[in-house]
Amino acid sequence: MDKRTNEEWIADLRAGGDQQAQALEDLRAIILRGLPYAIAGRIAPNSPQSEALVEEIVQETLMRVLEYLDTFEGRSQFTTWAHKIAVRAALTELRRVRWREVPLPEMGMDEEGDASYRELPDRQASPEDQVDRKDMMKRINRIIMEELTEKQRKALMAVAMQGFPLEEAAQRMGMNRNALYKLMHDARLRLKKRMEKEGLTPQQVLSVFEQVGK
């Protein structure tokens, strides 16, 4: 039976005994119907790896649902709330599997004030554009090095510039995802304000890079 009202779900899951066991079994079936949408395109759906992962995620989700039952405020369907927990558990695990071999990139600075990440020649850019871009890049790099802590630079390089998942970067940096988002928000604000102080807006700087190839 999965047509319970929110109140019925809460009551059954709190009841203990057979009533709770039946509710957990029904919730398990509901979560299993949603999980393919989290897994699709990320791992092969019928592989042994997928089956083991699904079982792990369902167990974890049911445990979390019981643990956080008191925090459900009834602002959505109870099942949507449970799916949300399952999706977080699934994507966290899938990101971990996918990125576990990838080292977290570092951002350093060489003697000329240039960031140490790889530069590729842009065949579409005119020599003038390339000079403009290089100068601007150096200026921005210097602001980054002067304004941000090593941790903020590392986070910015990994997440904002190279698309590293926040959750995975946070775990490698010994933080949780929430704390890393706050750290990056603070870093972005510092950079934005410093650039404003120097008479630069992100849009202006962006235009130097975007005009190339037009």
Partner: peptide, 26 residues
């Protein structure tokens, strides 16, 4: 997001553009 692939490192100016877009929307 840019999931791992061959030659994962993005072009330098492309990375800079991503960051500037984020700054612009901060």
């Amino acid at each position: 997001p840019a999931y791992p692939q061959n030659g994962m490192q993005a072009d330098k100016s492309e990375m800079m553009q991503k960051m500037l877009t984020m700054l612009s929307n901060t």
